[in-house]
């Protein structure tokens, strides 16, 4: 492979060689390095969202346990298989380009494109289901749960306590504990600690054990979250991050479809061959990262 490159580099200026390169090999390697750097930026772009996912999951595990009940595991699994298969056909396309097998290259690219279409179609059904049910990200879906009074939900009307009072309260609580008296719930503390509304914990908003038990039995929650009396505070947070991450991924799939479509067009014109396959190779790398991100998204949202 590298042989053929160098041979072409020696002759007159090859068709696909930029004026500032010595040979096609150098140009190919630079393109590849550039693509890997671009993939690194993609990883970091999604990395921000993965960190957000981790932080919120750490703070509100019950929201994730609850929210994932409303996702369709079958559709997600089918989509995962489709994307992995399309990655396979993409990798085959690269090999066929290198082997100069034009027809096989074209077929593989078209199969990859169809895989992307299938993924987006299933995603479309998933999204439209959610939208029809009114499970939306953000304020549209935000509604304080019915049992707000029973929860530890932060109440802005509570008095703000200064540090000294808080210290006294804590000492008192420690003494109670030592004496074996039941600890008093110091609800006002939230007013002092932070203006951030803490999520409900434990039985106050919602019982994680009940969901887990239901999950084990394989029974799907049929209640619409807005009518669910056991809905935890801030249940919308799960769908925020779900729509953000899968949405951004979906945009990447669309971009991938444009790239693959352009590759199909050029492959049909016979542009690629064993001496020039850089676009196929780079487009393939991009498609693999899109696939890889989904492989992380699927278990994070649907399975765990």
């Amino acid at each position: 492979m590298s042989h053929s490159h160098e041979q072409h580099g020696h002759g007159d200026h090859p068709e696909h060689l930029g004026h500032h390169w010595d040979n096609l090999q150098q140009q190919f390697e630079a393109g590849k390095l550039g693509m890997w750097l671009f993939l690194a930026t993609e990883v970091l772009l999604f990395g921000g969202l993965f960190v957000a996912y981790a932080v919120w999951r750490g703070n509100n595990p019950e929201l994730y346990a609850y929210g994932s009940e409303y996702l369709d595991v079958t559709m997600g699994a089918v989509n995962t298989v489709i994307l992995i298969l399309s990655s396979l056909t993409m990798a085959m396309a690269v090999t066929y380009a290198q082997l100069n097998r034009q027809k096989a290259l074209l077929v593989c690219l078209i199969l990859t494109f169809l895989g992307a279409c299938g993924f987006m179609l299933i995603k479309f059904f998933e999204y439209s289901d959610k939208i029809q049910e009114g499970i939306l990200p953000g304020a549209a879906f935000y509604d304080p749960p019915p049992n707000l009074e029973a929860s530890n939900y932060w109440n802005p009307d509570l008095p703000i306590i200064d540090r000294h009072t808080l210290l006294a309260l804590r000492i008192e609580a420690a003494e109670r504990e030592r004496e074996g008296r039941p600890a008093q719930i110091d609800r006002p503390r939230f007013g002092e600690v932070s203006s951030v509304a803490p999520a409900a914990v434990g039985p106050a908003g919602f019982d994680p054990d009940a969901v887990r038990a239901r999950h084990v039995r394989g029974e799907k929650s049929k209640v619409h979250p807005l009518q669910d009396p056991n809905r935890p505070v801030n249940a919308h947070m799960f769908f925020n991050i779900y729509f953000m991450m899968t949405g951004l991924h979906g945009i990447h799939v669309l971009v991938g479809m444009i790239v693959i479509g352009w590759l199909i067009y050029r492959a049909a014109l016979g542009h690629f061959g064993s001496d020039y396959f850089t676009p196929v190779d780079l487009g393939g790398l991009y498609w693999h990262i899109v696939d890889l991100i989904w492989i992380f998204l699927f278990p994070l949202f649907y399975l765990i």
Binding site: L45, F46, G47, A139, Y142, A197, H236, L248
Partner: peptide
Amino acid sequence: PVLGITLMLLAVERAFGIGIFDPSLG
């Protein structure tokens, strides 16, 4: 890229109120 995604989240937050950074939405 991390700035990119942060600004994107903030724009979505401001446009739709998805409650990622807004304490009143959790």
